[in-house]
Write a protein that binds this DNA or RNA. Structure first.
Lengths: 342, 342
DNA sequence: TAGGCCCTGGACAACGTTGTCAACTGAATG
DNA sequence: CATTCAGTTGACAACGTTGTCCAGGGCCTA
């Protein structure tokens, strides 16, 4: 007769438990636990017997049970917008490195810029009882996190501020970066500068737009409506926006691209254009050096690292008031931002 | 007096449990469980009372306990080489999408191309009792996975084959792709073609080298040692290798770059070079179209998706013999690979 | 009205681990 | 020799959830 499964519905079969190991080694359950966790108080001989049994059975401790008992999961959750976006790869990697240094695993998910999906993901992570959360917010209302924060789940918001909730944040200086980039164009003689950005409900998009306005205002330039285009970063839309600004009766002589995806599309449009249009993009891009694209660079890895370090400081007991860190950006001139007006 | 913590060592405080909810709602424990899991057999009135208590206490089900009881975690593990590598972002994202469609979470980690670290990560994931594993192998011996596979943890190896273990694999046609790329250069008149690749212990690197050899042999060309350079993809090393091949008494007239990181560095070197050297790179790169770089493109998202679908098919009970899928690559001519010998 | 059935709700055990505590061993001490 | 003590070891409860099973009450039918 076939051995009956412990979990009728289980898909991972019957893994041996400490009880099985104990039986095989002829010792008590707790002794196995001690060996598995390298606790003191086991004679070498007993330990050897237990190790042999573990080996023979292919036993692996069940961390679910361990977590239940101990109350900590040694894992943190990372919710970002899109892992496939080159900005988030290094960020995610940096978070992972810090987590690893603290012996924690990383569970992550993409919100695809959808607030509902963000909440769903975050709550799923909380149900797993991750020790902490790093969230790149898609939505702007995070009150749903109140019970979790009250319960002590450390939370750090990254890249964009949290909505209606008190928590640590690590941001890049979107406002200052955009202002610097636009001022750079102004300094090279441009008076008519277009701005193509992401949806204005996204905080960074709003801030960058604000920086754009401020730079032009500082230069005594009045922004015309036709110079600004906000919306999805879908290539077709961006392309249309760029083409509109570049044609027409009184075209712009320079463009500021609100993020890496916009920049990529704009570069393509400009490549097909016969006039030399100046361009500064927010976010650095691989190979931008070879293409001579001037950018406002934010250090994604530094952002991720900083956020993760904050998180673990919280987990280690720090309970100061929520901090807001803003990391500086850096203008990297590579040619496209230094072109004079056509 | 302060309320005493349930878990003295817990960092996530005292979260309310179903018991607390039950007490507050004045119902039994199991009734709360029924409401939380939308099981039938609860009157609307009772359900409302329970919902209110849940709301008031900020209760969230503890999935660790649930997992322990049910035997499934609804999570899968992904171990890759480096999340920051642009090739793995889309791959990871594709896996995540499939996981999400199956209601599973994704736990991931980077091996940094270190076999020990890979094993450590994989076993940590197994201890969490992930339902399945997708692994981009760093090492070439995966016998440590035997107990897991025997226990029914579905495992799919991606991008590189598993070592000494039977499991599903999803690969790209590295050999065929490289052969096609090199043949393309031959077809454009090149007879002296350099190959700069990754460490030969990596399967894809070996396969691509094999494709290179085959293409040249087919063309009746004898490969000279000085044309081939294998090693780390560190920019300094790649740069040195490229420069060596391009100078010297009898320099190559074309280069084949073994992966995206190599390509990026080679492009930089060639940009500084006065002769026009032909180049084909393995892996597509963002903006490669603008730079006119001819590449052998593999569809990272398709690889990830295919692997994840295989995994879930296993989890849904498929138990055919381990499959080996090889996805085709595609040559995208953009100019650099069509240059004639200088 | 008695009998049966369905619907709702709760008591209890189990999942695999770890913390607590007590029991045992053998040796060292008075 | 009795006593203490350190060092090992194991029995047991608990973590928070879900599956099983049974009890009670209301309703329908004969």
């Amino acid at each position: 007769m076939a051995e009956t499964a412990r979990h009728p519905e289980s898909r991972y079969g019957n893994r041996p438990t400490m009880k099985d190991v104990a039986a095989r080694a002829g010792v008590g359950l707790k002794t196995v636990s001690r060996v598995v966790n390298s606790e003191p108080g086991v004679t070498p001989d007993t330990e050897r017997r237990v190790q042999e049994a573990i080996e023979a059975l292919g036993f692996r401790r069940n961390d679910s049970a361990r977590v239940l008992r101990k109350g900590r999961t040694a894992s943190i959750g990372l919710v970002l917008e899109d892992l496939a976006d080159p900005f988030y790869g290094p960020l995610s990697r940096a978070v992972e490195e810090v987590a690893r240094a603290h012996g924690a695993l990383l569970i992550n998910g993409s919100s695809a810029e959808d607030p509902d999906r963000e909440q769903e993901l975050v709550l799923a992570l909380c149900a797993r009882r991750v020790d902490g959360l790093i969230v790149i917010p898609a939505g702007d209302d995070h009150r749903y996190l109140e019970p979790e924060i009250k319960a002590g789940i450390a939370t750090v918001f990254v890249d964009r501020p949290a909505g209606r909730v008190e928590a640590d944040m690590v941001l890049s200086d979107s406002f200052g970066g955009a202002r610097e980039g636009v001022a750079h164009l102004v300094a090279h003689g441009h008076r008519r500068i277009g701005f193509i950005g992401d949806q204005p409900r996204i905080h960074t998009a709003k801030e960058r737009l604000r920086g754009y306005h401020e730079a032009l205002t500082d230069a005594g330039i009045t922004v015309e409506d036709s110079w600004v285009s906000l919306g999805s970063t879908d290539p077709a839309r961006v392309r249309a926006a760029a083409e509109t600004m570049l044609t027409g009766p009184d075209p712009v002589t320079a463009l500021f691209a609100g993020n890496n995806r916009v920049t990529v599309t704009v570069v393509r449009v400009l490549a097909e254009c016969d006039r030399r249009i100046a361009l500064v993009g927010f976010d650095d891009i691989e190979l931008a050096d070879l293409l001579g694209i001037t950018v406002i660079s934010q250090d994604a890895a530094a952002v991720g690292r900083t956020a993760a370090e904050h998180l673990f400081r919280r987990l280690d007991g720090a309970d100061h008031a929520p901090a807001r860190v803003e990391l500086p950006t850096r203008l990297i001139p590579r040619g496209s931002g230094e072109l004079p007006p056509a």
